[in-house]
Amino acid sequence: MTPPVITYRPHHFLCSLGFQGKGYSDGFTANMSRIVVDTLRAPGGDDTLIEVTGVTDDICAPCPKRRGTLCTEQEKISALDMRHARALGLFDGTRITWAEAKRRIVKRVPPGSLQTLCQGCQWLELGLCEQALADLHSGS
């Protein structure tokens, strides 16, 4: 049986790297935990196939800011997605495993670059993603 394919907006690759159980609502946090902790970080999670999309994705599904295939903060989200897509070379329709995504992050996103790449993200100031990026680069 083929495992399901997860859909991701480009910026959710780095969000998943830094996720530490915080979110916009209880439903959002539970969903993200199911995808990130129970799937990607679980044994065999590196083999999980992710398809890039330019609209709302599996992480967005229960988000209170979701409006159909868009977001109440669409302009900010589109800018984040554009910067992340360019940095990671991941565009609408790209299919990649979580392991390959992490290799691309190491190759293409140096520590310290999130201040520019993630500019405007409310989670940036917590430092969770920057720490996760540094850990990935160091092999921790």
Rank of each mutant, 00 (worst) to 15 (best):
M1E: 15
P3G: 14
P3W: 05
V5C: 12
T7K: 14
P10E: 12
H12R: 07
H12V: 06
L14P: 02
L14D: 06
C15I: 00
S16V: 00
L17F: 10
G18F: 00
F19E: 01
Q20W: 02
G21Y: 12
G21L: 08
S25A: 15
D26E: 15
D26M: 07
F28C: 01
A30Q: 06
A30S: 09
A30V: 03
N31F: 00
N31V: 00
N31L: 00
N31Q: 01
M32Q: 11
S33T: 13
S33E: 04
S33R: 03
S33W: 02
R34W: 00
R34Q: 02
I35L: 10
V36E: 01
V36F: 04
V37M: 01
V37D: 01
V37E: 01
D38K: 00
D38F: 00
T39I: 11
T39P: 02
L40M: 05
A42K: 01
A42V: 00
G44L: 05
G45P: 03
G45D: 04
D46F: 08
D47H: 14
L49C: 10
I50F: 09
I50V: 14
T53V: 15
T56P: 02
D57C: 07
D57I: 01
D58Q: 04
D58S: 10
I59S: 02
C60D: 08
A61E: 10
P62A: 11
P62L: 07
C63Q: 01
C63E: 02
K65R: 05
K65I: 03
K65T: 06
R66L: 03
R66K: 14
R66D: 00
G68P: 08
G68Q: 07
G68L: 04
L70W: 08
Q74H: 12
E75G: 12
K76Y: 01
K76Q: 10
I77W: 02
S78I: 04
S78V: 06
D81I: 06
D81Y: 11
D81G: 10
D81W: 09
M82G: 12
R83F: 07
R83I: 07
H84W: 11
H84G: 07
A85E: 12
R86I: 14
A87M: 11
F91P: 09
D92G: 08
G93K: 06
G93V: 12
T94G: 07
T94S: 13
T94D: 15
I96H: 11
T97R: 14
T97N: 12
W98P: 02
W98E: 04
K102D: 12
R103D: 15
V106T: 14
K107P: 03
K107F: 06
V109D: 10
P110K: 10
P110N: 08
P111L: 03
P111E: 06
P111R: 04
G112R: 02
G112E: 09
S113T: 09
S113P: 06
S113H: 11
L114V: 11
L114F: 13
Q115A: 15
Q115T: 10
T116A: 15
C118F: 03
C118M: 03
C118N: 00
Q119M: 08
Q119F: 12
G120T: 04
Q122W: 09
Q122V: 09
L124W: 05
L128T: 14
L128M: 13
L128V: 08
C129M: 12
E130D: 15
L136S: 14
H137Q: 05
G139R: 06
S140G: 11
S140L: 13
